[in-house]
Amino acid sequence: MTDTHPELDDLVLPFSVEPLEARGRITRLGPLVDRILERHAYPPQVARLVGEMVVLAVLLGTSLKFEGRFQLQTRTDGAVDMLVVDFEAPDRVRAYARFDAERLGELAADASPAALLGRGHLALTIDQGSDMSRYQGIVALEGQSIEDAAHQYFLQSEQIPTRIRIAVGETLAGARHTWRAGGVMVQFLPSSPERQRQADLPPGDAPEGATAHVVDEDDAWVEARSLVETVEDHELLDPTLTSETLLYRLFHERGVRVFEAQTVIERCRCSRERIVGMLRQFSPEERRSMVGDDGRIGITCEFCSTHYQVEPAEVGVED
């Protein structure tokens, strides 16, 4: 019998490799990602994209040191023109995708993320509440994967050497296939700022023949990055392989230290009160136009598919 560890799913495990001055996080998602993907019955290509975005949001969102919201959102011209993942600190995540079924059907079943998404952008937004200004970083999507877009963000906006590996796939659990996902992120955070220097980004207007500014990568970072790059998809998805075991495989020669694991849960922010409040923001004419043949306003949450029936009088629509 396979020795699985369901109690270790839907957790994020922070770790550090002190000899390499590297820190990171690893996550293995089981029931959480399966509920999100199965609820919407996404086609497999779309499900994998959503799963990748959920993993990335969990890796980044759980690193926040304050209560608030972290959101990943793509807007592109491809068959999958929108992906949204909300992470509400400290532990709640929800997600959905919007896609054109006809255009999706014209693509191969194993179409790459670039083919599915097309061109557009990935936005990373941190919202600490009404008393604080929002932060937003934008990365152009021009044919790269979600992983590569994340690397581009850290290079351009945070200037922190970062390597991320993400995997999403289906496994057989009893009589049905279930979705699993996993990811690992490592960052080079030396105590000396000089060791973290990177080459300047191309200015775009350098004269022809100008010599590019080159900074050799730190040997410690090269080692940490190279080790994470060896992680294979099946290692991130295998329910019999614990996160601690995988980290030991990667860093046992240097020594890896793990910290307290953090649980993440799939939960939507929607509620009847929020729906009513949202409807009241529309004009009276718009609210009247929403009333259906049954005399009520019907709203379905895009994230969790919960359907709400609102009486027109609740939002100020008179008979």
Rank of each mutant, 00 (worst) to 15 (best):
H5Y: 11
E7C: 06
D9W: 04
V12H: 01
V12Q: 01
S16E: 15
G24W: 00
R28M: 07
P31Y: 05
L32R: 00
D34H: 08
A41G: 05
Y42E: 12
Q45H: 02
R48S: 14
E52P: 02
V54R: 04
L56V: 09
G61Q: 00
S63N: 06
L64A: 10
G68A: 02
R69D: 00
Q71K: 11
Q73E: 15
T76A: 08
D81N: 06
V84L: 14
V85K: 00
D86Q: 04
F87W: 01
D91H: 04
V93F: 12
R94Y: 10
A95V: 01
R98P: 02
R103K: 13
A108H: 14
A109E: 15
A109H: 13
D110A: 15
S112V: 02
A115R: 13
L117C: 05
G118M: 01
L122F: 13
T125K: 07
I126Y: 04
Q128P: 06
S130P: 07
S130E: 14
D131E: 15
S133E: 15
R134W: 06
A140I: 13
Q144D: 11
E147T: 10
E147P: 07
A150V: 15
L155T: 01
L155M: 04
Q156L: 07
E158P: 00
I160Q: 13
R163G: 03
I164G: 04
R176L: 07
W179V: 01
W179I: 02
G183T: 03
F188H: 07
L189Q: 11
S191N: 12
S191A: 14
P193I: 06
E194P: 02
R195D: 14
R195H: 09
Q196C: 09
Q198W: 07
A199P: 10
P203A: 04
P203W: 01
E208I: 05
G209M: 01
A210K: 00
E217M: 08
W221V: 09
V222M: 13
R225P: 00
E232V: 11
D233I: 00
L237H: 02
L237Y: 04
D238G: 10
T242M: 08
L246V: 10
Y248D: 13
L250A: 01
R257W: 08
V258R: 13
F259S: 10
E260D: 15
Q262V: 10
T263G: 09
R267L: 10
R269W: 06
S271F: 14
R272E: 15
R272Y: 15
R272C: 08
E273M: 07
G277R: 02
G277W: 05
M278D: 10
R280I: 06
Q281H: 15
E285Y: 06
R287H: 11
M290Y: 08
G298F: 02
I299N: 05
T300P: 05
Y308T: 02
Q309H: 03
V315C: 03
